[in-house]
Design a protein around this nucleic acid. Sequence first.
DNA 1: AAAAAAGTTGAATTATATGGAAACTTTTGA
DNA 2: TCAAAAGTTTCCATATAATTCAACTTTTTT
Lengths: 101, 101
Amino acid sequence: MMTLDQMKDKDIGEIGTPERDKYEFDLRMEVLGNMIKSVRKERNLTQEQLGELIGVQKSQISKLERNTKNVTIETILKVFRALKANVRFSVEMNESEFKVA
Amino acid sequence: MMTLDQMKDKDIGEIGTPERDKYEFDLRMEVLGNMIKSVRKERNLTQEQLGELIGVQKSQISKLERNTKNVTIETILKVFRALKANVRFSVEMNESEFKVA
DNA sequence: AAAAAAGTTGAATTATATGGAAACTTTTGA
DNA sequence: TCAAAAGTTTCCATATAATTCAACTTTTTT
């Protein structure tokens, strides 16, 4: 028997290695992209309409959703604000947890 | 009597205006910067030491903490990973809440 | 099955985040 | 009070995120 974590360690690389870090990062970015898409759909907007709200072309929205790239906080907040959704992020170290708005 | 929100609307600008948006953004970035600083101190590290962990100069850490700039997700994750802290962000729209890892 | 709408992709451009080096300022502690 | 350590700032280079435009593909509608 093998746990999922063990499989990831073996197949992708141990935590801390560049390969594994990239994997974890890409994963989160992918989730983030999907998130934009989900909320947009929830709001019944096309990429073009969302683009208009923010002031960018539909192609830009497409790229954010399919996240070909790393993204800045500003962009994330801009998009979700247009979608009337709240982004909250928090940092937790062991016991304590610091909330960031 | 005036609520804090009313004061902000009046003094900084209504929500949605560029001025107010900038204010709200700067605020969150400031909190984020303070967050880095807090966790770093918690770990008893100097900016230089944290820099070494990541592979950047202390000046770079200073910039992140004082948030002279917008930041990419990657940078944020990189820093907090070095600090062995977990960043979690989630998106909430009205009722439902979507978790991003 | 065509036409229209929605979404994707690639190439190119612009804006800006990342980063280093060095000088400078502030804090710490001997 | 002075020296060392820590933190900040400025100037600069480089990398890359943000963005557009136009052509293309996929999905939806009629």
